[in-house]
Design a protein around this nucleic acid. Sequence first.
DNA 1: AAAAGTAAAGGACATTTGTCCCACCTGTAA
DNA 2: TTACAGGTGGGACAAATGTCCTTTACTTTT
Lengths: 188, 188
Amino acid sequence: MIRTNTAFLDFILANQNNYPEGYVQELSINKGHRLIRQRSSVNAVSIIKEGIAKCFVYQDDGTDFILEFFGLGEVVGEIEMLNNEFSFAAVEALTPMTVLRIPRDRFNELLTKDKVFNHHVLKLLAGKVKYKATRFSFTHTHTLEQTLTKMLNDMPDLLEVISKKDLVSYLGITERSLNRILKILKDQ
Amino acid sequence: MIRTNTAFLDFILANQNNYPEGYVQELSINKGHRLIRQRSSVNAVSIIKEGIAKCFVYQDDGTDFILEFFGLGEVVGEIEMLNNEFSFAAVEALTPMTVLRIPRDRFNELLTKDKVFNHHVLKLLAGKVKYKATRFSFTHTHTLEQTLTKMLNDMPDLLEVISKKDLVSYLGITERSLNRILKILKDQ
DNA sequence: AAAAGTAAAGGACATTTGTCCCACCTGTAA
DNA sequence: TTACAGGTGGGACAAATGTCCTTTACTTTT
């Protein structure tokens, strides 16, 4: 459930030195910092080298809905860059992070000039579509108990890594419901 | 809610004659025909020139979950082609359709050789990610009544175009619930 | 037009999830 | 140690949705 894309990260790390100065910048990010703010312009793409971030949409009523957790090698900002639109979601560091930042013009240049880079971006987007599709169809056709069971099975340390509040936003439920299901699972 | 991409369709139609014979094939498709079957290999990308299709995941328990309705200019099969994987969803014609079909090798060739084509595909994928993200966050943070009200507002002839069964699969609810909400909305 | 068969709508109850609130735990300051 | 504050888990009831089955409406056949 924490998405990764090591193939892309490895590619960037291997080629980082071939690119001219300033193409790829390494940045440290504090926990809680927003890499992308909702409804604002995005001027660079970031590839995660270390740490975890959440990508979420926040509503007027104060509730958040988490779309994805991003880990190693995942990329943020490319959608906004391609659509040439303001961001529709926010991205926030859940842990201290290191990211590789590629500014807008460099990104566009790499997209047109580097076929392998271009293909990585195509695959990465295809992966995001597929992930969302399978995730949402799964949650719609399974009970909360089944969904949580699967998540805890895939990732036993889930509750140590992700806070309950974030888990609740990810599942689109209330804290009360999460507690209820966790109690049921524990009692079994 | 029925997605379209006329920019891409226009581009293909304008360039169709510049491409060598066999690059773009026009096909007629009967209502009910599956353009893509779930868990099978996909050997071509199809751009919709006429008609409407549903893209859906079906579960072992017999329930379907509709991810998107595709209309004019929308593209199917590109995700599978890029991931080089079997299809994770099925696509079925809801009306008689005409599609422009580009076989695997031609598609890959266009992707690498035609920068504009490549950019259209990048944008199209970014659009699919964004659509799914906003759709699912909306349904999670709004009641069924709000969601349906919005849908009927955006598309007053919704129930003439999309069958109740399909609407139910799209919303991830039961027919009973849909009827209940429709009655409430009618009574208001 | 009447009868029979089929599909759609809705009533009644069960289950799930949300809302509201209270009890308990933990840490801190007096 | 006590008193207080903030946070967490859970009880009780409300609201939403699903399941099951009856009723209604619509077709088709005779």
